[in-house]
Structure formats: C-alpha cells, structure tokens
Amino acid sequence: MASISQRDSAVILVKAAPRVGETHGELVCCAGLDFNGNWVRLYPVAFRTLEDSQKFGRWDTIEYGWSLPKGDHRHESRKLEHKSLVITGSLAEKSRAQFLARHVVSSLNSELEQGRSLALIRPRNAELVVERKDRAVLDEEKARFRSWHDQEANSLFGFMGKDLVPDEPSPFLFKYRYETIDGPREGTCQDWEIEATFLKWKRLYGESETLRKMTERFGVEYPKKGFVLAMGTHKAYPQWLINGVIRLDHGVENEIQQLLF
C-alpha cells in the first residue's frame, strides 16, 4: 500500500452516484474545495466500507490522508487513505452561498486551457431532460449491483445494515441542456443526490408522480431560483461531465463582487 504523503482538509461539494465496476467493485468519486480555495478530487472512495461516523455529505468538512494516484495526472486528484478520514464539522448554512459564489467560473474552455479539471459553472437557459435507460444497459447495471452486494453480504466482513448507499441504479438518466459563454452544452447528471432522491421518492410516490416531482424541483425550481453545476473532466480524456447539481440563488456572484469593491 502506498504511504500517505500528506494530510489535508476540505469542504465536500460533490458526491457522484455510486458505480459498480467489474474490477474494483462499488466506488464513488467525491470532490471539494480546501480552505485555500483549491479543488481536490478524492477517488476512488469505497463509501459503503466507511464507518458510519465517516460517511460524509455535501457541506461536511473533512480531514484525510492521501497520496498521489497512479495513472491519474489531473493535479487535483488524491488517492484517499480511508482509515484516515475524519469528519470535523459542517460549513454553516449562512456561509454556503458566498463560499460557492467565490469559485463560480464563466468558461469551462478557459479552465481546461489552464489545466484545471474541476469547476463550478452557472448554466443559462437550463432544461432538464429525463430519459429512460436502455433496457440492456439497465439490466447490466442491476446485475453488477446485485453481484457485488451479494458478495459483500455473504463475506465474513460484509457491510450489512449500512443502508446509506443506494442498492440499485436509477432506471432513468437525468440530463441538462444549457448554455455558457462557450456555447450550448448537454450532459448527464452523475449527482448522488439526484439519483438518491429519485429512488427514495419512487418508493414513496410511485414512478409517475416521482418523475413529475423531479421535473418540478430540478427542472423548474432550480432554474428559477438559481443553481450551479459542479463539473469534472474524465481521467482518460478532457471532456467535462456534470458531477454535482447545487442550488445557488441568482445574483450571488454579483453581490460578492460588490463587496470586494
């Protein structure tokens, strides 16, 4: 095991939905900002195996040990030492808007040119698009989830009872079509909150009513009141992906600029 080279702190902003791979099982990509305003990416995170006291959410502040990952040259990336992770608090609700607004950028192209692989962008004219997954794709995802979870449940060190992680994939893709100064874009949301919200509401209200409620919240309320997208590039190629969807009222960035001057 690689030795820990450093210990840092960060405010968590991004928890992508869990994905089950053929080689390494169930993993989560997480990201946040340190207290110097620098982005950090924590991957891979085997979230289900964390102790309950370590299972952080958005806005939690954490301390963690890390080393440089192999094969990932994005300078924000950190290989997390799971046992070292400690939740130290949570960013106060009254401080969250200003904290986010200081880091919103206008151009993803410019961020990429400067070698950055994580960014916050405010979408314009955002439209939520809901697509049912291809049946074969969904069946394959379900089989991977079922196989991995059965394996863990039957092992001596299985993680039974830790139900904070979804046990099934969403049957729908939630996408945004939107504009930035770079032009029109479209991307699939990989945000944990969106998938978890769908699965929770589906159990409570059924599929049709859940889709209506999802559209109302993420397709009407969020664009009306204001939100930002937490973007990240893929390790293998410089393509921006939607890793997080975070409410942020319209105009907060302008208020921050006025305070500075």
Rank of each mutant, 00 (worst) to 15 (best):
M1S: 14
M1W: 03
M1C: 09
A2W: 05
S5I: 12
Q6K: 13
D8S: 15
D8Y: 03
D8M: 11
S9N: 12
S9A: 12
A10M: 15
I12W: 06
L13Y: 06
A17F: 12
A17E: 10
T23E: 11
T23F: 05
G25H: 03
G25Y: 02
C30I: 04
G32F: 05
G32N: 06
F35W: 12
N36K: 12
G37D: 04
N38C: 12
R41K: 15
P44V: 09
V45N: 02
A46S: 08
T49Y: 11
E51D: 12
D52K: 13
S53C: 08
F56S: 07
F56Y: 15
T61S: 14
T61Y: 02
E63S: 15
Y64R: 02
S67N: 12
H75L: 09
K79M: 10
H82R: 04
S84M: 05
V86T: 14
T88C: 11
G89L: 05
L91S: 05
K94G: 00
K94A: 13
S95G: 00
A97G: 00
Q98T: 10
A101Q: 04
H103I: 01
V105Y: 00
S107C: 06
L108Q: 06
N109I: 05
L112M: 08
G115L: 08
G115A: 07
L118G: 01
R124S: 13
R124F: 03
E131G: 00
K133R: 15
K133L: 13
K133D: 00
D134I: 10
D134E: 14
L138K: 06
E140A: 15
F145W: 13
H149Y: 11
E152P: 00
A153V: 01
N154T: 04
L164T: 11
V165G: 02
E168R: 15
F172R: 06
P184W: 07
R185S: 12
E186C: 03
G187R: 07
T188A: 10
I194W: 06
I194K: 09
E195H: 14
E195R: 12
T197D: 15
F198M: 04
F198H: 13
L199Y: 09
L199P: 09
W201F: 10
E207V: 09
R212D: 14
R217P: 00
F218K: 07
F218E: 01
E221N: 10
Y222G: 04
K224G: 00
F227H: 07
V228A: 03
V228Q: 03
L229H: 03
L229V: 02
M231W: 02
H234V: 06
K235C: 01
Y237N: 11
P238A: 10
P238Y: 09
Q239E: 14
W240Y: 09
I242P: 08
N243V: 01
G244P: 03
I246D: 07
R247K: 14
H250D: 03
G251Y: 03
N254H: 09
I256Y: 01
Q257Y: 11
Q258K: 14
